[in-house]
Structures are given as structure tokens and as C-alpha cells.
Design a protein around this nucleic acid. Structure first.
Lengths: 198, 198
DNA sequence: ACTCTATCTTAACCTGTGTTAATGCATGGA
DNA sequence: TCCATGCATTAACACAGGTTAAGATAGAGT
């Protein structure tokens, strides 16, 4: 199963960067395969979270918690996604959010030491790092734009359209939190949708 | 004046990446120096915005506009800042926001062609691109966290503390828009501050 | 079949913000 | 000096969303 997911990842990456076979083999030989049961945390605020987790199987959420313990989902990650803390990875500072498994989750994880080693080994990794960061930036810009410009209804429709799989696997209150509202508000909006469409 | 700002930029960059003298000289020889009078646009939605602008002197804002024309500031850029559209630069897609000069502004601008040329010339540019994108990501994560977790009052205090210079150069309604509220709401909060502190 | 738990819905009330508009107050130009 | 302009403040009203709490529903486990 590991090979399957990692193989298709490499194919996706190949559209942007050429990774020589021996570099890929080196990476594969150094990855750690980790298992997190449902509910377990991959990272918590204050901890050092200096590795990336590429999800082989499972589902995680990344969320902030305010001083009263209220939680705000900022991102989900399912199969083929890579999650981690840039704060820890780039600056060596503690993570600022929680990463939690919502299903039993298996990851291929890559330590900061390994990442730095890759950067020195071959320029293809540097390029992959740049493109990865730039793509993530585009994702963040899109999300920021949606949160600012779109109504709750539009954001909800967009989420359903662009994440049909997540829509099925996530409870509604996690989606609500991701859209920036409470479960109650999302439920209200949904019932408005129904009555208006008749 | 150009040399001054660019020289101190190079010094700042040197903390992260070593740029050989001849590479730096090449870059300098290729930069375009542009002038935008107050109110002019460096980019608009729908246009291709495939160059970065490093601000030598002046002040710009980046903002979204919704379907009714309401505007939402998402970022400011003053001297030493670099602004641009990742959508255009990385994906060759049209820009999704406005970039507007709030003061008469001079920039050192770098075309997408030049950037791609740099990436092929020397690995130091690839690394600079990676670190630039990663640092910008950290900035975005911090802003996202503040918008989600902090009250308007906290966000306002943080902005004043971390941007004393901008606080003086910007009218209040531009700051309000950056903080995610209208000028009226910011003014209300400020008057609450005064009465509560006595 | 029954209970426990998680999820979703609905209602009532409250609060902060958007909206609109009027006012005050500088500053700069004619 | 006077007027126009830009900016900040304040008030009145409407409304979306937060909060709390009470049901409804469906599954899972016993």
C-alpha cells in the first residue's frame, strides 16, 4: 500500500520536477512510516513539529484553539496530502496548531534532518521545496479570498463541489468550523437552502 | 537611492542564502525601475501580473474587491517589501487582486522571464525562491491565526505595535479594512478603548 | 430490544458588525 | 477668507451569527 500511494505521488511530482531514480530511492529508504489511531495528535501547539507527514491512508485535521478552548479547523489532509508545521520546519520554532487524526491514519514522515540532507544532495529537492511552498501559498490565497469575499452559502457549495470525498467523510460540524462558522449556523443556512429552493 | 535599498536587501538576504557577486551583478543589470504615482495600479484582477515589484520608495496596498465593489485590504508593502501575484508568476494565470500605490512609488521589478533565467543560472536563486515562499507562508499563517483567534482590539493593538511606521502613513479606514472590519467598526472599538481606560 | 453516544436540527435570546447618514474637523487651493 | 475635499466620529436600525439548551435521529454495542 505504501508503494502505491508513493508511486502515484512521484508521478504527480514528475509534472513539475525531475527527480532522478537514485534520489527517489534514497528518499524512500529514509522515510519513517508512522501510525496514528483515530483521535491521536500528530502535533500540538508548543511542541516542536519538525517533520512532514505525507498521508498514505487516513484523514487528519489541522486546527487552532483559542484561550477558551474553542477550535477552528484550518485545513484537512487525506490520502496524498502532506501536512506539517512550517514554523517548526523552517524556523525551528514550536508548532502553533494541533494536527489530529480523524480516522486511523498511516503516514510517510520525513524529518527536518532528512529534508536538509536532501537539499544538500541534489538541486531537484530544492526545486521541489520551492514549488511545494509556492503551491501551498496559492492554496492559502484562494482560501483567504473565499473567506473574505464569499457568503457562507457560496463557501459551503464550493467546499462540497471541490471536496466531495471529504464531504462524505467529515461530520458537518468539522466542515462548519472550516468554513468559519459554528455547526448551528451551518445547519441554519442549510435549512434556508431547502425552503428557498421550493 | 536604488543602490541603498538594494544593498540593504542583499545584506538581509545574506543571512539565509549566499549570492555570489557576479550573480548579484547580473540581477542588478536586468532589473527594471518603475514609477507609479499615487493611486496608480501595479496590477488588476484579470490581468497577467508576471513580475515581482520590490519597493524602493513608497507604499502600496493589495486588496480584493467583491461583486459590489467593496474593497478588502489583504496586505501592505512599503520600502524593502516585495509584492506580486503568485497566481501569475507560478501558474501563468491572471492576477486575482488589485495592487495600488498609496504614495508615489518607485520599484525595482523583476520579470517572470528573468526569474526563470535565474533559476537556471545558479542554484542560489532556487534556494532564495524557496526561502522567500516559505517566509511568506509563515506571514500568511500568522495573519490567518490572528484573524481567527484574536478580537478586533487585539488585532488592532498588534498592528500598531508591529507596524508603527505604517500606522502613521495609512488612513484609519485602510487599517480597518486590513483588520477585517469597516472604518465605522474600528472607530467604535477605539472609542470603547478610551472610555474603558478611565 | 434497549441504551448510550454522536450528530444534526430548531428555537430563543444576545451581541457585534454592516449600513446609512449626519456631523465635526482638519487641510489645501482658489 | 471661503469652499471643497478627505477623514474620523457618532447614532439608529437591521441582521447574521454566537450561545445555550432542548429535541430528533441514527448507529453501535450490549
Amino acid at each position: 500500500m505504501y508503494e502505491e500511494v508513493l508511486y502515484s505521488l512521484r508521478a504527480a511530482i514528475a509534472n513539475f520536477v525531475v527527480i532522478p531514480d537514485e534520489e527517489w530511492a534514497f528518499l524512500l529508504s529514509k522515510l519513517d512510516y508512522l501510525y496514528f489511531p483515530k483521535g491521536a495528535f500528530l502535533a500540538k501547539p508548543g511542541e516542536m513539529a519538525d517533520c512532514t507527514h505525507t498521508i498514505i491512508k487516513g484523514l487528519v485535521r489541522i486546527f487552532y484553539a483559542d484561550s477558551e478552548g474553542k477550535e477552528f479547523n484550518k485545513q484537512f489532509g487525506a490520502e496524498h496530502s502532506t501536512v506539517g508545521s512550517y514554523t517548526s520546519l523552517v524556523f525551528g520554532q514550536p508548532c502553533r496548531y494541533y494536527i489530529q487524526a480523524l480516522e486511523d491514519t498511516t503516514t510517510a514522515s520525513c524529518s527536518k534532518e532528512l529534508i536538509d540532507q536532501l537539499y544538500e544532495r541534489h538541486p531537484c529537492w530544492e526545486r521541489m521545496g520551492r514549488l511545494g511552498a509556492q503551491h501551498y501559498l496559492l492554496f492559502k490565497e484562494k482560501r483567504e479570498e473565499e473567506l473574505i469575499l464569499d457568503t457562507l452559502e457560496e463557501r459551503y457549495r464550493t467546499f462540497l463541489r471541490e471536496n466531495p470525498d471529504l464531504s462524505r467523510r467529515l461530520p458537518q460540524y468539522h466542515i462548519a468550523s472550516y468554513l468559519g462558522v459554528t455547526d448551528v449556523a451551518l445547519s441554519r443556512m442549510r435549512s434556508r437552502l431547502k425552503t428557498n429552493s421550493y
